[in-house]
Amino acid sequence: MEKIDKSRFAWVGSDPEKREGISRPSVTYWKDAMGRLMKNKVAMVCLVIIVLIILSCVIVPFVTPFESREQHLGEANKGMFTVCTDSRYEGQNAVHIFGTDNLGRDLFVRAFEGGRVSLMIAFSAVFVNLIIGMIYGGISGYFGGMVDNIMMRIVEVVNGIPYLIVVVLLMMVLPKGIFTMVVAYATVGWTGMTRLVRGQCLSLKNQEFVVAAEAMGAKAGRIIRKHLLPNTLSVIIINVTLAVPSAIFTEAFLSYIGMGVPVPQPSWGMLAQEGASVFQLYPWRLWIPAIAISLTMLSFNLLGDGLRDAFDPRLRR
Protein backbone atom coordinates (compact mmCIF):
# COMPACT_ATOMS: atom_id res chain seq x y z
CA MET A 1 0.00 0.00 0.00
CA GLU A 2 1.48 3.33 -1.08
CA LYS A 3 2.08 5.84 1.71
CA ILE A 4 1.15 9.51 1.26
CA ASP A 5 3.83 12.08 2.06
CA LYS A 6 2.94 14.25 5.07
CA SER A 7 4.35 17.32 3.34
CA ARG A 8 1.39 17.35 1.00
CA PHE A 9 -0.87 18.33 3.91
CA ALA A 10 -0.93 21.56 5.92
CA TRP A 11 -2.59 22.40 9.26
CA VAL A 12 -5.05 25.22 8.73
CA GLY A 13 -6.19 25.47 12.33
CA SER A 14 -9.67 26.33 13.53
CA ASP A 15 -11.58 29.52 12.88
CA PRO A 16 -12.95 30.75 16.24
CA GLU A 17 -15.62 32.86 14.55
CA LYS A 18 -17.06 30.03 12.47
CA ARG A 19 -16.60 27.54 15.29
CA GLU A 20 -19.14 29.33 17.48
CA GLY A 21 -21.43 30.31 14.61
CA ILE A 22 -24.89 28.84 14.04
CA SER A 23 -25.32 27.15 10.68
CA ARG A 24 -29.01 28.08 10.57
CA PRO A 25 -31.45 29.85 12.90
CA SER A 26 -33.11 27.75 15.57
CA VAL A 27 -36.87 27.34 15.05
CA THR A 28 -39.54 25.48 16.95
CA TYR A 29 -41.36 22.49 15.53
CA TRP A 30 -44.57 24.44 14.92
CA LYS A 31 -42.80 27.41 13.39
CA ASP A 32 -40.86 25.14 11.07
CA ALA A 33 -44.05 23.30 10.07
CA MET A 34 -45.92 26.54 9.38
CA GLY A 35 -42.98 27.78 7.31
CA ARG A 36 -43.11 24.65 5.14
CA LEU A 37 -46.88 24.94 4.84
CA MET A 38 -46.66 28.52 3.63
CA LYS A 39 -44.22 27.43 0.92
CA ASN A 40 -46.80 24.94 -0.36
CA LYS A 41 -48.66 27.08 -2.90
CA VAL A 42 -51.43 24.55 -3.49
CA ALA A 43 -52.22 24.23 0.22
CA MET A 44 -52.22 28.01 0.72
CA VAL A 45 -54.54 28.55 -2.26
CA CYS A 46 -56.90 25.91 -0.84
CA LEU A 47 -56.75 27.60 2.57
CA VAL A 48 -57.73 30.92 0.99
CA ILE A 49 -60.60 29.23 -0.88
CA ILE A 50 -61.87 27.63 2.34
CA VAL A 51 -61.73 30.93 4.20
CA LEU A 52 -63.57 32.72 1.36
CA ILE A 53 -66.28 30.03 1.25
CA ILE A 54 -66.81 30.19 5.01
CA LEU A 55 -66.93 34.00 5.05
CA SER A 56 -69.30 34.04 2.07
CA CYS A 57 -71.66 31.56 3.72
CA VAL A 58 -71.71 33.74 6.84
CA ILE A 59 -71.98 37.19 5.22
CA VAL A 60 -73.86 36.78 1.91
CA PRO A 61 -77.29 35.81 3.41
CA PHE A 62 -77.24 39.07 5.40
CA VAL A 63 -76.32 41.42 2.53
CA THR A 64 -78.49 40.10 -0.31
CA PRO A 65 -81.91 41.73 -0.79
CA PHE A 66 -83.68 38.36 -0.89
CA GLU A 67 -84.37 35.78 1.80
CA SER A 68 -83.87 32.05 1.34
CA ARG A 69 -87.57 31.24 1.93
CA GLU A 70 -88.99 34.24 0.09
CA GLN A 71 -91.14 33.11 -2.86
CA HIS A 72 -91.70 34.96 -6.13
CA LEU A 73 -94.20 32.71 -7.90
CA GLY A 74 -94.27 34.95 -10.95
CA GLU A 75 -90.51 34.44 -11.45
CA ALA A 76 -90.24 30.67 -11.09
CA ASN A 77 -87.36 28.90 -12.84
CA LYS A 78 -85.65 32.06 -14.03
CA GLY A 79 -82.16 31.83 -15.51
CA MET A 80 -78.92 33.17 -14.10
CA PHE A 81 -78.44 36.98 -13.79
CA THR A 82 -82.14 37.68 -14.24
CA VAL A 83 -83.43 41.06 -13.04
CA CYS A 84 -86.17 40.76 -10.44
CA THR A 85 -89.48 42.19 -11.68
CA ASP A 86 -91.41 41.68 -8.47
CA SER A 87 -93.28 44.81 -7.34
CA ARG A 88 -91.66 44.56 -3.90
CA TYR A 89 -88.25 45.29 -5.47
CA GLU A 90 -89.32 47.84 -8.05
CA GLY A 91 -86.56 50.37 -8.71
CA GLN A 92 -83.91 48.43 -6.73
CA ASN A 93 -82.41 46.63 -9.75
CA ALA A 94 -82.28 43.42 -7.71
CA VAL A 95 -80.78 40.53 -9.69
CA HIS A 96 -81.20 36.77 -9.24
CA ILE A 97 -77.52 35.94 -9.78
CA PHE A 98 -78.02 32.15 -9.80
CA GLY A 99 -81.61 32.32 -10.99
CA THR A 100 -84.66 30.98 -9.13
CA ASP A 101 -86.19 27.61 -8.35
CA ASN A 102 -89.69 26.33 -9.09
CA LEU A 103 -91.12 28.48 -6.28
CA GLY A 104 -89.31 31.61 -7.35
CA ARG A 105 -86.83 31.51 -4.46
CA ASP A 106 -83.45 33.11 -5.10
CA LEU A 107 -80.83 30.38 -5.59
CA PHE A 108 -77.90 32.68 -4.80
CA VAL A 109 -78.89 33.24 -1.19
CA ARG A 110 -80.10 29.64 -0.86
CA ALA A 111 -76.75 28.31 -2.07
CA PHE A 112 -74.78 30.24 0.55
CA GLU A 113 -77.28 29.63 3.32
CA GLY A 114 -77.22 25.95 2.36
CA GLY A 115 -73.43 26.08 2.58
CA ARG A 116 -73.74 27.54 6.06
CA VAL A 117 -75.95 24.62 7.11
CA SER A 118 -73.69 22.00 5.51
CA LEU A 119 -70.52 23.46 7.02
CA MET A 120 -72.17 23.86 10.42
CA ILE A 121 -73.16 20.19 10.46
CA ALA A 122 -69.71 19.10 9.27
CA PHE A 123 -67.75 21.19 11.77
CA SER A 124 -70.05 20.31 14.67
CA ALA A 125 -69.89 16.58 13.95
CA VAL A 126 -66.11 16.60 13.52
CA PHE A 127 -65.69 18.64 16.73
CA VAL A 128 -67.76 16.13 18.72
CA ASN A 129 -65.79 13.25 17.21
CA LEU A 130 -62.55 15.06 18.07
CA ILE A 131 -63.44 15.49 21.74
CA ILE A 132 -64.72 11.92 22.19
CA GLY A 133 -61.83 10.41 20.23
CA MET A 134 -59.13 12.33 22.11
CA ILE A 135 -60.49 11.44 25.55
CA TYR A 136 -61.33 7.82 24.76
CA GLY A 137 -58.15 7.13 22.78
CA GLY A 138 -55.93 8.88 25.34
CA ILE A 139 -57.30 6.79 28.20
CA SER A 140 -57.08 3.55 26.22
CA GLY A 141 -53.54 4.19 24.98
CA TYR A 142 -52.11 5.33 28.32
CA PHE A 143 -53.49 2.61 30.59
CA GLY A 144 -53.12 -0.27 28.10
CA GLY A 145 -53.53 -3.87 29.23
CA MET A 146 -57.02 -5.06 30.09
CA VAL A 147 -58.45 -1.54 29.98
CA ASP A 148 -57.17 -1.10 26.43
CA ASN A 149 -58.52 -4.49 25.32
CA ILE A 150 -62.02 -3.80 26.66
CA MET A 151 -62.19 -0.26 25.28
CA MET A 152 -60.96 -1.29 21.84
CA ARG A 153 -63.47 -4.14 21.64
CA ILE A 154 -66.20 -1.56 22.23
CA VAL A 155 -64.70 0.55 19.41
CA GLU A 156 -64.81 -2.45 17.07
CA VAL A 157 -68.48 -3.08 17.89
CA VAL A 158 -69.41 0.58 17.28
CA ASN A 159 -67.33 0.69 14.11
CA GLY A 160 -69.25 -2.30 12.76
CA ILE A 161 -72.57 -0.43 12.88
CA PRO A 162 -73.31 1.21 9.49
CA TYR A 163 -73.82 4.95 9.74
CA LEU A 164 -76.94 4.90 7.55
CA ILE A 165 -78.69 2.46 9.90
CA VAL A 166 -77.95 4.75 12.85
CA VAL A 167 -79.41 7.70 10.95
CA VAL A 168 -82.57 5.77 10.05
CA LEU A 169 -83.11 4.68 13.65
CA LEU A 170 -82.52 8.17 15.00
CA MET A 171 -84.89 9.69 12.43
CA MET A 172 -87.61 7.40 13.80
CA VAL A 173 -87.30 8.79 17.34
CA LEU A 174 -85.91 12.30 16.74
CA PRO A 175 -87.17 15.08 14.45
CA LYS A 176 -85.25 15.83 11.28
CA GLY A 177 -82.72 18.59 11.68
CA ILE A 178 -79.14 19.63 12.25
CA PHE A 179 -79.01 18.22 15.79
CA THR A 180 -80.14 14.76 14.69
CA MET A 181 -77.55 14.62 11.90
CA VAL A 182 -74.75 15.69 14.24
CA VAL A 183 -75.80 13.11 16.82
CA ALA A 184 -76.01 10.38 14.18
CA TYR A 185 -72.59 11.20 12.73
CA ALA A 186 -71.00 11.50 16.17
CA THR A 187 -72.46 8.21 17.33
CA VAL A 188 -70.25 6.13 15.05
CA GLY A 189 -67.76 8.64 13.61
CA TRP A 190 -65.44 8.98 16.62
CA THR A 191 -63.82 5.56 16.25
CA GLY A 192 -61.27 6.67 13.66
CA MET A 193 -59.98 9.50 15.86
CA THR A 194 -59.89 7.13 18.83
CA ARG A 195 -57.65 4.63 17.05
CA LEU A 196 -55.36 7.38 15.85
CA VAL A 197 -54.92 8.95 19.30
CA ARG A 198 -54.53 5.54 20.94
CA GLY A 199 -51.72 4.59 18.58
CA GLN A 200 -49.90 7.86 19.24
CA CYS A 201 -50.28 7.49 23.02
CA LEU A 202 -48.95 3.91 22.93
CA SER A 203 -45.77 5.14 21.24
CA LEU A 204 -45.35 8.13 23.58
CA LYS A 205 -46.20 6.74 27.01
CA ASN A 206 -42.77 5.10 27.42
CA GLN A 207 -40.85 8.24 26.50
CA GLU A 208 -38.57 9.88 29.08
CA PHE A 209 -40.77 12.92 29.70
CA VAL A 210 -43.75 10.70 30.57
CA VAL A 211 -41.63 8.52 32.88
CA ALA A 212 -40.29 11.67 34.56
CA ALA A 213 -43.84 12.98 35.08
CA GLU A 214 -44.87 9.65 36.62
CA ALA A 215 -41.79 9.69 38.89
CA MET A 216 -42.77 13.16 40.11
CA GLY A 217 -46.21 11.87 41.10
CA ALA A 218 -48.32 13.27 38.26
CA LYS A 219 -51.73 11.66 37.98
CA ALA A 220 -52.91 9.85 34.87
CA GLY A 221 -55.34 12.61 33.88
CA ARG A 222 -52.62 15.26 34.00
CA ILE A 223 -50.17 13.11 32.02
CA ILE A 224 -52.76 12.49 29.30
CA ARG A 225 -53.86 16.14 29.21
CA LYS A 226 -50.48 17.86 29.55
CA HIS A 227 -48.01 15.44 27.97
CA LEU A 228 -49.60 12.91 25.65
CA LEU A 229 -52.37 14.79 23.84
CA PRO A 230 -50.30 17.93 23.08
CA ASN A 231 -47.69 15.74 21.38
CA THR A 232 -50.35 14.23 19.11
CA LEU A 233 -51.76 17.58 17.93
CA SER A 234 -50.03 17.51 14.55
CA VAL A 235 -51.60 14.15 13.66
CA ILE A 236 -54.97 15.24 15.08
CA ILE A 237 -55.02 18.46 13.03
CA ILE A 238 -54.32 16.53 9.84
CA ASN A 239 -57.05 13.99 10.62
CA VAL A 240 -59.59 16.73 11.41
CA THR A 241 -58.81 18.53 8.15
CA LEU A 242 -59.39 15.32 6.19
CA ALA A 243 -62.53 14.42 8.21
CA VAL A 244 -64.39 17.64 7.36
CA PRO A 245 -64.89 16.83 3.63
CA SER A 246 -66.13 13.37 4.58
CA ALA A 247 -68.72 14.93 6.88
CA ILE A 248 -69.74 17.41 4.16
CA PHE A 249 -70.25 14.58 1.67
CA THR A 250 -72.23 12.55 4.22
CA GLU A 251 -74.56 15.48 4.91
CA ALA A 252 -75.00 16.13 1.19
CA PHE A 253 -75.75 12.46 0.54
CA LEU A 254 -78.35 12.22 3.32
CA SER A 255 -80.03 15.45 2.22
CA TYR A 256 -80.01 14.21 -1.37
CA ILE A 257 -81.96 11.06 -0.44
CA GLY A 258 -84.36 13.05 1.74
CA MET A 259 -82.98 12.10 5.17
CA GLY A 260 -81.14 15.32 5.93
CA VAL A 261 -82.31 18.75 7.02
CA PRO A 262 -86.09 19.33 6.75
CA VAL A 263 -87.77 21.41 4.06
CA PRO A 264 -87.61 24.39 3.52
CA GLN A 265 -84.19 24.65 5.24
CA PRO A 266 -81.65 24.65 2.37
CA SER A 267 -78.44 22.65 2.23
CA TRP A 268 -76.09 21.73 -0.57
CA GLY A 269 -77.42 18.19 -0.69
CA MET A 270 -81.02 19.34 -0.86
CA LEU A 271 -80.22 21.87 -3.59
CA ALA A 272 -78.47 19.12 -5.56
CA GLN A 273 -81.50 16.86 -5.18
CA GLU A 274 -83.84 19.61 -6.42
CA GLY A 275 -81.48 20.42 -9.30
CA ALA A 276 -81.14 16.79 -10.36
CA SER A 277 -84.91 16.50 -10.86
CA VAL A 278 -84.88 19.33 -13.45
CA PHE A 279 -81.35 18.85 -14.79
CA GLN A 280 -82.38 18.51 -18.43
CA LEU A 281 -84.33 21.79 -18.36
CA TYR A 282 -82.29 23.89 -15.92
CA PRO A 283 -78.83 22.29 -15.62
CA TRP A 284 -77.30 25.19 -13.65
CA ARG A 285 -79.51 24.32 -10.68
CA LEU A 286 -77.45 21.13 -10.25
CA TRP A 287 -74.11 22.62 -11.26
CA ILE A 288 -74.16 25.27 -8.52
CA PRO A 289 -74.40 22.96 -5.46
CA ALA A 290 -72.27 20.30 -7.16
CA ILE A 291 -69.44 22.78 -7.77
CA ALA A 292 -69.75 24.11 -4.21
CA ILE A 293 -69.53 20.62 -2.70
CA SER A 294 -66.68 19.53 -4.99
CA LEU A 295 -64.63 22.71 -4.49
CA THR A 296 -64.98 22.61 -0.71
CA MET A 297 -64.09 18.91 -0.44
CA LEU A 298 -61.15 19.27 -2.83
CA SER A 299 -59.80 22.28 -0.92
CA PHE A 300 -59.98 20.50 2.43
CA ASN A 301 -58.33 17.35 1.03
CA LEU A 302 -55.47 19.26 -0.59
CA LEU A 303 -55.00 21.35 2.57
CA GLY A 304 -54.87 18.14 4.58
CA ASP A 305 -52.18 16.75 2.25
CA GLY A 306 -50.22 19.99 2.68
CA LEU A 307 -50.50 19.77 6.47
CA ARG A 308 -49.33 16.15 6.37
CA ASP A 309 -46.23 17.17 4.44
CA ALA A 310 -45.61 20.20 6.68
CA PHE A 311 -45.84 18.24 9.94
CA ASP A 312 -43.61 15.40 8.69
CA PRO A 313 -40.19 15.93 10.37
CA ARG A 314 -38.50 13.74 7.76
CA LEU A 315 -39.09 16.47 5.15
CA ARG A 316 -37.23 19.07 7.17
CA ARG A 317 -34.22 20.47 5.36
Score class of each variant (00 low, 15 high):
189 G>W: 13
151 M>C: 08
237 I>C: 04
168 V>C: 02
12 V>K: 12
305 D>K: 09
244 V>P: 09
309 D>R: 08
311 F>D: 09
139 I>L: 02
258 G>E: 07
24 R>H: 12
229 L>F: 03
168 V>F: 09
173 V>E: 06
61 P>W: 02
5 D>Q: 12
8 R>D: 10
232 T>Y: 05
160 G>K: 07
257 I>E: 05
1 M>L: 13
311 F>R: 15
271 L>K: 02
210 V>C: 13
151 M>G: 00
264 P>T: 11
280 Q>C: 04
317 R>A: 14
252 A>C: 14
131 I>K: 00
55 L>P: 06
103 L>I: 04
274 E>D: 15
255 S>H: 10
31 K>S: 14
249 F>T: 15
93 N>M: 14
163 Y>N: 06
159 N>C: 03
41 K>V: 01
272 A>H: 06
247 A>S: 10
55 L>E: 09
121 I>L: 10
187 T>L: 15
54 I>C: 04
13 G>S: 07
33 A>D: 09
315 L>H: 05
20 E>L: 11
170 L>C: 04
164 L>D: 06
155 V>E: 15
6 K>Q: 14
257 I>W: 01
86 D>R: 01
226 K>M: 13
146 M>Q: 03
299 S>Y: 10
253 F>A: 15
285 R>A: 06
45 V>M: 13
302 L>T: 01
160 G>Q: 02
148 D>P: 00
68 S>G: 00
13 G>F: 05
256 Y>M: 13
6 K>F: 11
131 I>T: 07
271 L>Q: 10
287 W>S: 05
135 I>L: 12
160 G>F: 06
120 M>F: 05
275 G>T: 03
156 E>G: 07
3 K>P: 06
209 F>Q: 12
287 W>N: 01
296 T>R: 11
306 G>D: 01
168 V>R: 09
202 L>W: 06
140 S>T: 03
226 K>I: 02
110 R>I: 07
275 G>S: 00
148 D>N: 03
276 A>V: 08
158 V>P: 05
67 E>F: 06
110 R>S: 08
175 P>I: 00
80 M>H: 07
83 V>D: 13
38 M>L: 11
164 L>H: 08
156 E>N: 15
173 V>L: 13
293 I>W: 04
239 N>C: 07
82 T>S: 06
283 P>L: 01
151 M>N: 00
99 G>V: 01
